[in-house]
Amino acid sequence: MSAAPSAPTRALPGLVLCLIGGLLALGVHHLVPALSTLLVAILLGIGAANTLGVSTTLAPGVAVASRRVLRWGIVLLGLSVPLQAVLALGPGVLAVVVGVVAGGIVLTLAWGKALGVPPTQRLLIACGFSICGAAAVAAVDGVIDADEEDVAGSVALVVVFGSLMIGLAPLLGLALGLGPEARGVLAGASIHEVAQVVAAGGIIGSGALAVAVLVKLARVVLLAPVMAGISLWRRTQNRDRGATGTLPPIVPLFVVGFLAAVAIRSSFDVPAAARDVAATVQTLLLATAMFALGMGVRIAGLRRLGGRTVLLGAVSTATVTVIATGGVLLVG
C-alpha cells in the first residue's frame, strides 16, 4: 500500500493551474493595458470553474493560492511604499488621505447597513474602495476569512468603479479649476487601484503623476493599521460571543511582513531593477490568488451580489470622491 502524498505534493496541481491563470492575466493586461490584471485573473478563474469544474485533485492547491499566495503578494506591496516620500507630501495632504480612508470606511459601512448589504460584503467594499482596491479586499479576507463569492464580487466592483474614475477624476479637477498638482492629489485620493491612479495621473500630465502615485501610496500605508483594527474587533466579537479556540492575532503576520517591506524600502536604497522585479512578482502573486478565488465562484452565486451591493459600490465611490475633493479644496 503506497503512502499518501504529502501536503505540498497534493497542493502542486492546483497551484500550477492558478499560476498559469495568473500568467495569462498578466499577458492579457500586457496586450490590453486598459484591462486590470486582477479582474482578468478572477474572470478567468470563474470561467475555468464553471466550464471545467474544480476536481478534488485541484482543490488543495486552489485553497493555498487563495490564502497564502495572496498574503505574500500583499507583503511585497510594501516594497512599493517609500515612507520618506509619502511623509514629504506634508501634513495637509496626509490629513486628506487619513480623512479619505477613515471617512470612506465609516460612511460606506453606514451606507451598506442602510441598504441592507450583508456585514462582510460591506466591510470588503469599504476597505477596498477607501484604501487600495483589490489588495485591501484580499487583506480583509485574510483577516476575517470571507466567502469567496463576496471577495470576487468586491474585487469586480473595485475594478469597475475605479476604472470609471480614471476619466472622471481628471475632469472633476478641471471643472473645479485645480492646478496639475492639486488634480494629482485628487486622483490619488479618490481612485481605488494603484494602476488606475497611474492611468489618471498620466492623463493629467507627468507633473501630476508622481504626486498622484505618492498620495495613493499614502493610502496603502494605512492598510496595516486598518487590518490590525479589524483583527482586534474580531477578537472582541469572538470573546463577547464566548467563542472557543484560537483568537486571531491582533496584528496578522502578513501585515507585519507588509510593514517590514515598507521599512526595507524606506531604509535602504533598493535598486530600481530590484523594485521592478518585486512589483512584477507581487502582481503575479495577487493575480494567481485572484484566479484561485475565481475558481471558488459559481455563476449562479454571483447573482447574490444584487443591485444593492452594486449601488453601495457607486455610493462608496461618490463618498470617497467627495471627501477627497473637499480635502483638496481646503488644503489648496
Rank of each mutant, 00 (worst) to 15 (best):
V86E: 09
L26Q: 12
F268K: 06
L26A: 10
D141A: 10
L107D: 05
A49S: 15
L311V: 07
I131S: 08
P8E: 13
C127D: 01
V331I: 09
G332Y: 10
A135Y: 09
A287Y: 07
V93P: 06
F291R: 01
F268P: 01
A263T: 14
P225D: 14
Q84N: 14
L186K: 08
G21Q: 06
L293F: 14
G202S: 11
E181R: 15
V100S: 12
C132R: 01
G128W: 12
L329S: 02
V62F: 10
L214F: 08
L209P: 00
I230N: 09
A199T: 02
A11E: 08
V320I: 15
E149H: 14
R235P: 00
P180V: 14
S231V: 11
A63L: 13
A287D: 02
V262T: 04
H30I: 11
G167N: 02
V100R: 10
A95I: 00
T280M: 06
C127K: 05
V213M: 06
L43R: 02
A110Q: 04
A212D: 05
P180S: 15
A318Q: 03
V211M: 13
V198K: 11
G92D: 03
A95V: 01
Q237H: 15
L174C: 08
G78V: 03
L12V: 03
A49Y: 08
W72E: 02
G294M: 12
L232Y: 12
F129S: 12
F129V: 10
V28I: 15
H30G: 12
G112W: 05
K113H: 13
G142N: 10
P119G: 01
G128D: 06
L214W: 03
M165N: 06
T37D: 08
R239W: 11
G92T: 02
S206Q: 12
A4H: 07
P60L: 08
G306Q: 13
G78M: 07
P91D: 06
L330N: 02
L305T: 13
G142K: 08
G153T: 14
A228S: 14
R10G: 00
